[in-house]
Amino acid sequence: MIERMLLALLFLIGFWGIVGIRNIIKKIFGLTIINNAVVILFILEGSRIGNQVPILEEGIENIVDPVPQALMLTAIVIGVCITALALALAFRLYRHSGTFDIDQIHRQVHDVT
């Protein structure tokens, strides 16, 4: 129960970071946080049906569901790639405009065009 509440809170914090903070680096942090919240949720809930690691050595039975773990491996790598690309874009935006504030970047771009 408490872990679900914490995960929902984590997700909301990340979402607040994306929507409510103007700094684009912190927005990217927010993106990483919500991604990780979903990853943890998926793996945590998937491990409720068993109690052993899904590596079939002798005497291991009643393993946890291995599918969420494999899926989340993919999701984590994709999340990292997106974060890397977003940071690169943020770097370029900063070099052009000298600020990380999304509203000011918006304003500068619209003044140019």
Binding site: I24, A86, L89, A90, R92, L93, H96, S97, I105, H106, Q108, V109, V112, T113
Partner: peptide, 9 residues
């Protein structure tokens, strides 16, 4: 273009 970076972001 700078606008393209912002749009992409």
């Amino acid at each position: 273009k700078q606008g393209a970076f912002l749009a992409s972001f």
